[in-house]
């Protein structure tokens, strides 16, 4: 849905049409097919705004996943493969990151630098890398003792070669699983920040922002809070289901 966004939104998601504000979805009394999912308080097309919101959510989530996945995996490789004092230092760092209250950090950053998408991405990624570091490191530790890695090392392969040719291919499964699960969490985090007004700035559409605006119209227009929340929940649900499915696929002990 988000992917086709650039090619297809029925209306400009920021175009105001006050004459047609608070229209219900078309299949309810009073709705019109010009606005299939109705309009908001300013008469903006709900469908177009939902698609626009999906685009922002997915964009933020994908960048977050890429950044934190790459960073977390790097840390895991260094920590797990090289071991020693570096390992214990990096793992303390990981513990600290996991204990970090991300929403609070976002608030401080937004307070200082003003709200922006970059800050949203930065804060979510700031916490997100830690779970990759944890999980992948423990896999690297067990891979390290396996024969093919020992053999490669005995035959004179350097750490960079071993990490690239032997370790990385063997942890991709876990990386994909973690990434899928993180995707859902990142989308919720983005929505939460936009909801609090420290993420995507209006009038640009975002699911969190739409939910925040809808609070004034709970009596008059049920679709304002319902639709973006539904879109949000379904996206997260599918990402969670996908992650769970991939995890089972990836874990031989759970296969049957």
């Amino acid at each position: 849905m988000g992917a086709i966004g650039p090619f297809f939104t029925p209306h400009d998601p920021t175009r105001v049409d006050l004459a047609n504000n608070l229209l219900p979805p078309a299949f309810f009394p009073g709705g019109v097919w010009t606005y299939p999912l109705g309009t908001d308080q300013l008469g903006r097309d709900m469908l177009s705004r939902l698609i626009g919101g999906a685009r922002v959510s997915l964009l933020v989530a994908l960048v977050v996943v890429l950044v934190s996945g790459a960073f977390g995996t790097t840390i895991a490789m260094l920590s797990g493969y090289l071991g020693g004092r570096l390992d214990s230092f990096l793992m303390r760092l990981t513990d600290a990151a996991l204990a970090f209250p991300f929403l609070l950090v976002a608030i401080v950053l937004a307070g200082i630098f003003g709200p922006s998408i970059q800050i949203v991405i930065l804060t979510i990624a700031l916490v997100g890398w830690a779970s990759y570091a944890r999980v992948i490191r423990s896999e690297v530790l067990s891979l390290k003792t396996r024969d093919f890695v020992t053999m490669a090392s005995v035959m004179g392969a350097g750490p960079a070669w071993i990490i690239r040719r032997h370790l990385l291919p063997n942890v991709t499964g876990s990386i994909v699983v973690l990434a899928t699960l993180q995707l859902g969490r990142a989308i919720v985090s983005e929505a939460a920040l936009s909801f609090l007004g420290i993420g995507v700035r209006p009038p640009a559409p975002s699911w969190g922002g739409m939910l925040s605006d809808s609070q004034q119209y709970l009596i008059a227009a049920w679709w304002l809070p319902t639709l973006p929340g539904l879109a949000l929940s379904l996206t997260v649900l599918s990402s969670n289901l996908m992650g769970d499915w991939l995890r089972k696929l990836n874990d031989p002990t759970q296969r049957h």
């Binding site: 859902g184 919720v188 929505a191 939460a192 909801f195 969190g208 939910l211 809808s214 609070q215 709970l218 049920w222 809070p225 319902t226 973006p228 929340g229 949000l232 929940s233 379904l234 997260v236 649900l237 969670n240 289901l241 769970d244």
Partner: peptide, 17 residues
């Protein structure tokens, strides 16, 4: 599964509504 996919702030708004 559903509980882990529905964000608290949406649930809050729907509850209020």
């Amino acid at each position: 599964f559903i509980g882990q996919s529905v964000p608290s702030f949406w649930l809050a708004i729907i509850f209020v509504m």
